[in-house]
Amino acid sequence: MSSTGRSRPQPADAAARPRWPLGLLGLSLIGAAISAYLWRAKAGEMSLICGPVGDCATVNSSAFSEVLGVPVALLGTVMYASLAVVLLVEWRRPGTPLSQFGFALALAGALFSLYLTGVEAFVIRAYCVWCLTSWVLITIIAWTWGRALRRSAA
């Protein structure tokens, strides 16, 4: 308890630190790398390698790859980078209010990715393997984060 009477999260002992933020931090960094790759490819700076699955060039250049002129891949890069920072804080000082913000961001990312996957299937009718990978990553992040918060609230 601090002298102001408010309790503040203290850095946790190494043994007491939860492990889930570190796992999600790794997934966030992978997500950030994928999003940054899609973003730079959209800008024409890198060639987009799609592999044998789907047609990521069509998806990444479609009208649904931007929001008000801002590439969705750039939004994804910023989101994953923000999540990585919040997860690092959560690992060092568990239980800060920042964790709820991080979960909200991850959940928003998962829901928006779900919407975009629906757009791929029913509007564009083409799949982007990188986008699907990102969807899986952000869904795992949001799900795990939500469970951890629920456990701590129980």
Binding site: L75, F101, L107, A153
Partner: peptide, 20 residues
């Protein structure tokens, strides 16, 4: 707080989809 977080996420996604 968790419910607030879910609410904020839903509003954020609705705004993104609407803007798009």
């Amino acid at each position: 707080s968790l419910q607030w977080a879910v609410g904020i996420a839903v509003v954020l996604v609705a705004l993104l989809i609407g803007a798009q």
